[in-house]
């Protein structure tokens, strides 16, 4: 009897296999590539405006909705569904479709080149046409994996979160893919409006104040409950503003201040319940350094949680995010 108990249920290999299947690690594109992120991670992308935060979300979305391969062509996607909660109400779907099309075309081009190298006869005009037709199918398939809603105030945000479970449950029954990525574009969008609410009269001592604090005291448990039932990776952006005074003093204090400007001097305004909920945090910002590229703005990305002592540089082009070496 005791022996049976000691024997264990599964080997480490089996367990790893099971865990990785249920809670896969997602290899996300640049600049989120340094750290393996899995479901149940809450990633916060912090940066002043503009710092390509929404662009990062969109590029991650493109990688998620693309399949790994389709009709023998490698697209290198993750084939996951994306839920996009737009609190800034500013997403232009054209940007997503543009990037997705470019990514598909690029993968097809590479596929043709490798085919040529292998000596396989290159397709003639008819199959070319067929190819375009298939690409439309692929495009449609991918775009369907992207779900979007916008919230004009924090109540719409709360309402969307409270009933999201029903939507996901319905979808789970129709198609099998379980893993989702939940994106929230600018978690701090309603900060000022909610601060305005906190001074409203209560009438009743029982009644909860509709402040930022109580909104997030509901938002965080709602997301936690969702994550229990539906394993998801959560990516949230947060717009921050620099404290002019301290950034000035670190600027004045000398050369080594660049990291300082990045790390400590933006103003944290989110309630502590949200801050402690975040498990990974990356800071992005525009670089002041314009030596390398004449026209394009260069952005810097730096992991704050866990703290990695290196900074990645990237630029944003039509095709998406490009790294600088």
């Amino acid at each position: 009897m005791a022996k049976l108990w000691i024997n264990g249920d599964e080997s480490a290999k089996q367990m790893l296999g099971r865990v990785l299947k249920e809670r896969p690690l997602l290899l996300l594109p640049h600049p989120l590539h340094r750290i393996p992120l899995g479901v149940s991670n809450i990633v916060e992308i912090v940066g002043p405006s503009p710092s390509a935060k929404t662009e990062i979300l969109l590029q991650v979305a493109v990688s998620c909705i693309l399949p790994k391969s389709w009709n023998g062509v490698q697209y290198g996607g993750l084939e996951h569904s994306v839920l996009f909660l737009d609190l800034d109400c500013r997403l232009d779907i054209f940007r997503l479709s543009q990037s997705l099309k470019l990514r598909i075309t690029e993968a097809n081009r590479l596929h043709k080149i490798t085919k040529k190298q292998k000596g396989v006869a290159v397709s003639n005009a008819i199959t070319e046409h067929q190819c375009e037709y298939d690409d439309m199918d692929l495009f449609t398939e991918c775009m369907k994996r992207f779900s979007y809603t916008r919230c004009y105030d924090s109540f719409e945000f709360l309402a969307a979160l409270k009933v999201l479970h029903h939507k996901l449950e319905k979808e789970r029954n129709t198609d099998g893919s379980g893993v989702h990525v939940l994106m929230i574009d600018n978690i701090g969008a309603f900060y000022w409006i909610n601060r305005g609410f906190s001074s409203l009269p209560q009438w009743n001592p029982n009644r909860k104040n509709l402040s930022l604090q109580s909104v997030f005291e509901t938002v965080v448990p709602e997301i936690k409950k969702l994550l229990l039932l539906h394993p998801m990776l959560v990516l949230a952006t947060k717009m921050v503003t620099y404290q002019v005074k301290s950034s000035y003093s670190s600027w004045a204090s000398g050369v080594a201040s660049e990291v300082n400007i990045g790390k400590g001097t933006y103003r944290e305004y989110m309630p502590s319940i949200w801050q402690s909920f975040v498990t990974r945090r990356i800071l992005v910002r525009a670089s002041d350094d314009k030596r390398k590229l004449q026209d394009q703005v260069c952005y810097l990305a730096e992991w704050l949680l866990p703290a990695l002592n290196l900074t990645d540089e990237f630029v944003v082009g039509d095709a998406g995010i490009l790294t600088l070496l």
């Binding site: 997503l96 809603t149 409270k162």
Partner: peptide, 22 residues
């Protein structure tokens, strides 16, 4: 109340519907 709330937020749309609307 929960089913009332479902009508209190903007409807979910997939990428294709958004693109079509645009």
């Amino acid at each position: 109340l929960l089913s009332i709330i479902e009508t209190c937020h903007q409807p979910w749309m997939n990428g294709l519907m958004l693109l079509e609307d645009r």
